[in-house]
């Protein structure tokens, strides 16, 4: 189980990386944390002729506070977010998601940009990006552009990135006061990919009514999905157990997950509903301050 031959490129700046990608086109691949790419290369399921390693590009590795949220450079390690008080305080959902991403040895290498660009349907970060309405800063031969998370994930392992584009940074806006968040998933073992998962945020107004609800499911379709119809059920109302049940039912109504060796489609759909219910309850408890 050894990788096929490739040429290795270690650009020092973003522009150089983009040029390399443009030069080699489809024969090139971007190497960030490598935790998804290298297994595929070792299995020879991926065999790029050129590997463009972003790990030597210092300008991609940072974490800053910017206005109403945080901006994370593309090659910032997942572990950096996990250890960051800034992330915990300003983006608690993102912070809570981190321990669910593989194991810590994987997060020591795995990057935020890599996780989004890989777009594994069962991975946590894309769903978090949807709930937080993150913006993905992309750079390519024609310059820079921002892509909204909702426009970024096209299909399983497919994003809005063009072949010579890379993720430069991700902007995660903070949520307003009175917001509670939760991320829950069911996996065969801890650290495994989710059979179903949900990221949720709820914002309560001073009267205790839900002013904003965002729910994104993962592991139950080709891309993470915002379930806006379910969010609508909660918004503008006092959240009761009954309402939560209604939202959960709505959230999974249109799901069409697939079966694999770990779980049947029916199971995924059913358990997604359970997780939505539990996640709303947990987010609500955080919004009201009953739970930290």
């Amino acid at each position: 189980m050894k990788p096929a031959v490739f040429d290795y490129h270690a650009p020092a700046i973003v522009q150089e990386a983009v040029e390399l990608l443009q030069r080699y086109g489809e024969d090139a691949t971007v190497l960030a944390g490598g935790q998804s790419l290298v297994p595929l290369m070792n299995l020879r399921l991926s065999r790029p002729g050129h590997v463009v390693d972003l790990n030597g590009v210092p300008e991609l590795d940072y974490l800053t506070v910017d206005g109403e949220g945080i901006v994370v450079g593309a090659t910032t390690r997942q572990r950096t977010l996990e250890r960051s008080d800034t992330v915990r305080d300003l983006c608690p959902l993102l912070w809570r998601a981190m321990p669910l991403v593989g194991h810590f040895q994987v997060r020591n290498r795995g990057t935020v940009g890599g996780s989004l660009a890989h777009a594994d349907p069962a991975s946590e970060l894309p769903a978090v990006a949807l709930v937080l309405q993150a913006e993905v800063g992309v750079v390519g031969p024609t310059g820079r552009r921002d892509v909204k998370a909702e426009d970024f994930f096209i299909d399983a392992y497919t994003t809005a990135l063009d072949s010579a584009e890379i993720v430069e940074h991700v902007r995660f806006p903070s949520l307003p006061g009175g917001t509670g968040t939760a991320i829950l998933e069911v996996a065969r073992r801890e650290g495994d990919f989710a059979m179903a998962g949900v990221a949720a945020s709820l914002t309560l107004d001073p009267e205790g009514l839900c002013s904003s609800a965002r729910l994104a499911l993962f592991g139950v379709g080709p891309t993470p999905v915002r379930v806006i119809k379910a969010e609508r059920i909660l918004e503008g109302r006092a959240i009761t157990e009954e309402l939560v049940g209604e939202a959960a039912a709505m959230a999974v109504q249109d799901l069409d997950p697939s079966s694999d060796v770990h779980a049947s489609a029916a199971y995924r759909k059913r358990v997604a509903g359970v997780l939505v219910r539990r996640a709303i309850a947990e987010a609500l408890a955080r919004a009201t301050g009953e739970q930290t």
């Binding site: 935790q35 810590f104 290498r109």
Partner: peptide, 17 residues
């Protein structure tokens, strides 16, 4: 790698320059 536990099967030796 620089004090952090990583999978050495998922790193190419050249990356440790």
């Amino acid at each position: 790698l620089d004090g952090e536990a990583v999978r050495s099967c998922l790193l190419f030796a050249v990356q440790t320059e």
